[in-house]
Design a protein around this nucleic acid. Structure first.
Lengths: 201, 201
DNA sequence: GTCTATATACTGATAGAC
DNA sequence: GTCTATCAGTATATAGAC
């Protein structure tokens, strides 16, 4: 796991501590979700009192925000900058999902928090709505790019296909977690995306 | 919403009360999940004290169990008995998903609890593992039935397709909740299943 | 930067009156 | 069958010493 850009840089002294805390928070929130996961348990894992932890993050919500931002930065870095276009982005998705397999705690975190975040009164509802809209838009653009280059099967509805790619991705992760990694997520996702294309994925 | 079989029958007196409680519990657990949702709030909604509620369900976990059983019975009743075979079951899925659109609280409950349930130490982990295995098996059987009747496209992998149908279903619901019902889940699901078949869905 | 101590609130569950 | 009262546990967050 690499260190995302936003966590490197100038405030190196206490940023190291912050990174430790974020890592511990990932573990705790992955296992129990945001609501149930407690600051005390996060603090224990980094050998800090609960009050000591709150010196670095003023509230539970801000800590969770840091966790999510960290994960997004990490994913973006994995996809590469600038972001690949068209079919290349879809290839990146498959690689990303395969990579996520190696950090099940993070996958669990994403799955659980996405579900919690559907509630309108969840502290991070807006974050998840925006994130979903963004990812959906990105995927749609990739499909339209492929279509413009004759790489898309004739009767594919780009909007529906974009939704389905993301939905399949998320849903396969739920099942993978439930079945304790009993199948290959990436290969199922690749198989579906391949049916949309005229070129090899 | 009809009343599932398991909630009708002999103990009609207090079963009415139990049903009220289960309905309220659906609302509460849908909004906040099992962990965060409180018995007190459920009790308030049915005009009962928290202790009064615990007379009907001895623990929070038993209440949730009742909620889930109720929902499964309701879905099974909707699909019809005996359960349809092959392509007919898949048609039932599409109708079911369309119907779920009319009770977003239940959809939210399922989405949230499925995610919570992936955690090995969740009180209902086993329930969700078993349920997933069952649904997966059912879907696989339907696909193999279709295959045996020449209704399946030639290079479809039944196991992968079964996983994908369920995953797409679940994932589309997450997005639908997040986007506040901005698209037609059933039509996206139907579109995917149709690509697997040689007959009209 | 980290601690102890504490304020305040809410949790699930139990005991026992009516 | 429903209540009040209460227990023991846990939560986030704050105040202030060091």
């Amino acid at each position: 796991m690499t260190t995302p850009r936003s966590l490197r840089g100038s405030y190196a002294k206490s940023e190291g501590r912050r990174q430790e805390i974020v890592s511990a928070a990932v573990e705790v929130f992955s296992a129990t979700g945001f609501h149930k996961g407690s600051l005390r348990e996060v603090a224990d894992r980094v050998g800090l009192s609960q009050a000591g932890l709150l010196h670095h993050f003023p509230s539970k919500e801000r800590l969770l925000e840091a966790v999510l931002t960290w994960r997004d930065d990490d994913s973006a870095e994995r996809l590469g900058a600038p972001l690949p276009e068209g079919v290349d982005l879809l290839r990146g998705y498959v690689q990303l999902v395969e990579n996520n397999t190696r950090t099940p705690e993070l996958m669990e975190l994403h799955t659980l928090l996405s579900a919690e975040g559907t509630s309108a009164d969840h502290p991070l509802h807006d974050y998840f709505v925006n994130r979903n809209t963004m990812v959906l838009g990105l995927t749609l653009k990739a499909l339209e790019h492929a279509e413009a280059h004759g790489q898309l099967q004739p009767d594919v509805d780009c909007h529906s296909a974009a939704r389905s790619i993301i939905a399949l991705w998320d849903g396969l992760q739920v099942q993978w977690l439930l079945l304790h990694g009993d199948f290959d997520i990436a290969s199922d996702l690749r198989r579906y995306i391949q049916t949309l294309l005229t070129v090899q994925l």
